[in-house]
């Protein structure tokens, strides 16, 4: 009798734990998903849906109208491509430059290593607003003003410090002995990097790429200041949406959120891998 009692008590404890566990998960998901859902609702629910209160959980009449309208708006598609281009340049450059810096920080001891690390981080402490005017002037002189490349470059400057420091941690996570084993068994340093270090660091490098992508995608200030006609999506929307009806703004907002979400979803396996959780 007492045995069954304790068993059921034990089961009760477990279910209480499970309840807590799942409510935690639900709360965390809601934290992220509810705002996105509301934005989606506003975007897809049409003009009436955007102003309705209280909100329905499901849109009463789904219409892609504002969305299509939004996409058809002059400049939106082009600025979307501009954003992708700038983010692409940012990802490529911050990995190409940041990963070697991170590797050097992880593997070699050199004088001023700590100051270098601090210096890298300090570049982010410098407010971009002060730089806006001189930057614009130099950009005009260099012919970079109002180009996707120019925006990509300035976004690289923003993403590079993080890329260097994050990849440092990733390369530190690849045991040095593995690399030494590769050297002993016939690899040059470069071969060892590509055969051993790079595959093992790949999940972390992908995560760094995501990070660079998101930094570029979300950045408004520099993109607004440095472009006039070739705006990125964020900069373009900032100017256009302030004069638009509500449901139209929601559609724009969704357009801004979705690519990041889709991108992170696509590389989630690698993101999980850096936390040591296997998604298999």
């Amino acid at each position: 009798m007492s045995n069954t009692m304790s068993t059921s008590g034990h089961a009760g404890f477990i279910s209480a734990r499970m309840l807590l566990f799942w409510s935690g998960i639900i709360a965390l998901c809601a934290w992220v998903l509810v705002p996105i859902y509301l934005v989606a609702l506003g975007a897809l629910g049409g003009r009436a849906g955007a102003y309705q209160w209280p909100k329905n959980l499901l849109p009463n009449d789904i219409s892609l109208q504002p969305f299509i309208l939004f996409l058809k708006t002059e400049g939106v598609f082009q600025s979307f491509l501009n954003s992708l281009g700038a983010a692409g340049i940012t990802v490529a450059l911050s990995i190409a430059l940041g990963a070697p810096a991170g590797y050097a920080l992880a593997r070699y001891n050199f004088r001023g290593k700590d100051s270098y690390r601090l210096l890298v981080l300090l570049t982010r402490a410098f407010p971009l607003a002060i730089l806006a005017l001189p930057l614009t002037v130099s950009y005009i002189r260099l012919g970079l003003y109002d180009t996707v490349l120019g925006v990509g470059l300035i976004h690289t400057v923003l993403a590079l410090p993080f890329a260097a420091l994050v990849t440092q941690g990733i390369f530190l996570g690849v045991p040095r002995e593995l690399e030494e084993a590769a050297w002993v068994f016939g690899c040059t340093r470069i071969q060892a990097f590509f055969k051993i270090v790079a595959p093992l660091a790949l999940p972390g490098l992908v995560a760094t790429a995501v990070f660079a992508f998101v930094i570029s995608w979300n950045e408004v200030f520099a993109a607004s200041v440095l472009t006039v006609r070739h705006r990125t999506l964020t900069a373009y929307l900032l100017t256009v949406l302030s004069e638009s009806p509500m449901h139209y703004r929601f559609a724009g907002g969704l357009m801004l959120i979705l690519p990041s979400v889709v991108f992170i979803f696509a590389v989630r396996r690698y993101l999980f891998a850096i936390w040591g959780v296997s998604s298999k």
Binding site: P175, E177, E180, A181, V184, C187
Partner: peptide
Amino acid sequence: PPKDRGLAMVFQNYAVF
């Protein structure tokens, strides 16, 4: 460089890839 010395090595932590 290590690769040109004609040797093989077994590491303390195995260093198996």
